[in-house]
Design a binder for these strands. Sequence first.
RNA 1: GCCGGUGUAGCUCAGUUGGCUAGAGCAGCUGAUUUGUAAUCAGCAGGCCACGGGUUCGAAUCCUGUCACCGGCUCCA
Length: 634
Amino acid sequence: MKIFLPDNSIIELDEGSTARDAAAAIGKGLAKAAVAAAVDGHQADLSKPLRDGDSISIITADSPEGLEIMRHSASHVLASAVLDIYPGAQLGIGPAISDGFYYDFLLPAPISESDLPRIEERMRDIAKARAPFQHRRLSRDEARRLFEDQPFKLELIEELPEDEEISVYTDLKFTDLCRGPHVPDTGRVTAFKLLSVAGAYWRGDENNPMLTRIYGTAFPSQKELGEHLERLKEAERRDHRLLGRQLDLFHIDEEVGAGLPLWHPKGALIRKIIEDFWRDAHLGSGYEMVMIPHIASVDLWKTSGHWDFYRENMYSPMDIEGQQFIVKPMNCPGHIKIYKSRTRSYRELPIRWAELGTVYRFERSGVLHGLLRVRGFTQDDAHLFVRPDQIQEEIIGIIKFVLYMLRIFGFKEYEVYLSTRPEKSVGDDAHWEQATEALRVALEEVGLDYEIDPGEGVFYGPKIDMKIKDALGRAWQCTTIQVDFNLPERFDVTYVGEDNAEHRPIMIHRALLGSLERFIGCLIEHYAGAFPLWLAPVQAVMLPVADRHLQYVEQIATRLGQEGIRVEIDYRKESVGKKIRDAQLEKIPYMLVAGDKEEDAGTISVRLYSDGDVGARPVEELVGDMMREIGEKS
RNA sequence: GCCGGUGUAGCUCAGUUGGCUAGAGCAGCUGAUUUGUAAUCAGCAGGCCACGGGUUCGAAUCCUGUCACCGGCUCCA
């Protein structure tokens, strides 16, 4: 029979040949590297018999698909091992994920990470046994009987569509419900490591029982596995919580409260630089600044709908002379009140009001995470009041603005989501649809790739979210753009139109960086604490070789200070080596060494954090170089 | 909130099966050294062993409650 290959060539095989035979016919090396095949575009086991006219491509473990298949097989090996060691274990699911795989179990007794080596060892035995992954199709009844003591599997079987065949795979002794495909045998799961154990609700629902999830990773070779583990270690070194302490940027104090960061001078300075840049950028882009108080009467939150729809995230009211007040979880009602302080004309719109507005939200204790998830944070918030005919253009403007901002801070990779109407929401369908459409068109217009996140909108409207990743690859939502027909209605917000009649504006809520806390947390990890010159809290440190050079060094520091360069002098009676080491650990971009040579020549020796010693240069040249670099924000 | 883990000096960590006055390095302070591109030397000080109960002749160590942190789940900027 004839089999077509990806390069359009044809091979001739005997009747009843399998994908494995095809691989062998193409080449010995390929047959050895093959983990699965794609037959007519569908992934299949190598043991799959081929039919005349099939087109086939061989999948190897070094392709993304192959790696995923191999990791999925690794999760079966894990389940095998766990079942061996903990006979009563019940099985959940065990998929491949972006950096590895996991499997969920309901275990007879809790386990901890110290149990992983033992499981790993058993996995190695199973791998060594090179047990084939055998595929079988079962009737529904057979499957029910096979998994009679596996309630989670039974639940999955019941949910498979009636007409779908039930497919199982067996390796060594263990049989699992699985669509496949799998590597040919357990021996193909070579380089793997179990990483952590965690709790996970069955099917991700907190009303369901909590299972024990074991995470692991697997690679085609030990070398790649080693590299990956090295990357994980490197990511740990970039952790903003660690760098926050090392660089003395912030801390979170138990006695102050969980999720309530305290900014130290250097952290506060970085924040100030970002805030200044942000304000200037906004004032230069048609925004005006507003400011509102941190607490407001509970009546305001009843009008806004937050009392009904957002109360579980709000802190309890406080009593002030018999009146109830609430710490604000959002800034929008305040901005609306400013709008409503007088009548507005259609000529004023769009109104763009921005504020670095601090809000407080209740977050469950288990979700707090350094600066990335806190209970009090400052949003780089703005609310736009627009006429219906302006909405599209304004959203496009916002998207362009955010892309500009993210580029300045060096973020090139982000995920974009369009979140649609959630279950718990207000407003009529027509408005929701109109708003969602406006967001979609804007995304297309700007040419951003995005995914739909169904049901993830806010209670008052759909939104565009942009997420950036931390050092470990976890995505954090920063940018958000939300269209809102609801609040203008609730507050009876109006403008007087050309026709002298009252009309309802539409509100756009947006935060570009999201919150300064989260954004700076991501920024620290992004730069691994080595901030570019314009953001560095200390831009240069003067390192005199001996005390007799102090006067010269002070002169230069004064000169740099005149240009607004943030410079410190290391007055300590320490060796130059020590001073350099400490400056290097503080990740100060410019280390400026001056001794007799420099003083005589009127120069300064420059050592860059990033490049080491780059030699001496005249002081004015240095000033020019630094000012240029600061101006470029690079 | 849930599952598992962790909590010893400012930081990183030791601390045997419960038993002497809880140790070390770094940081800090004092003194000496005036130093040329990632650590000069010496001394001193620093601890309610997260917090509260309990078991015990005796608890950093065992039990228990609370809090915080870490990894996840769920939830969100």
